[in-house]
């Protein structure tokens, strides 16, 4: 235990910081679980913990996307309604946010408690949301086509 504690942890003096919970929430609201997953991956990389956390992140992604489908189908009159899909994606996004926040809660709290400057959120979050929106649009298109063809 002591040997592990006395092993160096900092390879460089580059300041370590992550995207804030505000950025994560923005991704959840506008981009759903896909955007949340992208932001979670970024934060994991910044913390050097992707190797350890990737199964959890994949789980969040899978459950999030599945939840969108379930929400859409059973709660919002089916996914044919684009508005329902958006709401479902947002709800699933929030749920994913909750899981990711729990995973990185200490580091996210550290930003405010220790006054650590978070990373600039604009580019990463906008990019994540655009990717998520593109994927959502594709999913809606695929599902609509499937429903139309009676699959």
């Amino acid at each position: 235990m002591t040997d592990e504690l006395l092993r160096p942890s900092l390879e460089s003096s580059e300041p370590v910081s992550i995207l804030s919970s505000g950025a994560l929430m923005g991704a959840a609201f506008f981009g759903g679980p896909i955007a949340v997953t992208i932001v979670a991956v970024m934060n994991s990389v910044y913390l050097g913990r992707l190797k350890k956390e990737w199964p959890m992140i994949i789980g969040v992604f899978a459950v999030g996307v599945a939840a969108v489908y379930l929400f859409g189908n059973y709660a919002f009159d089916g996914l044919a309604d684009a508005r329902s899909f958006r709401l479902a994606a947002r709800a699933a996004g929030f749920a994913s946010f909750g899981v990711v926040w729990l995973m990185h809660r200490k580091e996210l709290r550290a930003l405010s408690t220790l006054g650590i400057e978070p990373r600039n959120p604009w580019k990463p979050v906008i990019a994540a949301c655009l990717v998520a929106m593109a994927l959502h649009a594709w999913i809606v298109m695929m599902l609509t086509e499937a429903m139309t063809n009676g699959v």
Binding site: M1, K106, E107
Partner: peptide, 12 residues
């Protein structure tokens, strides 16, 4: 370690 976001190690 706290300043460097190594929270677990900081706790130990």
């Amino acid at each position: 370690m706290l300043e460097s976001m190594r929270i677990e190690k900081a706790g130990e």
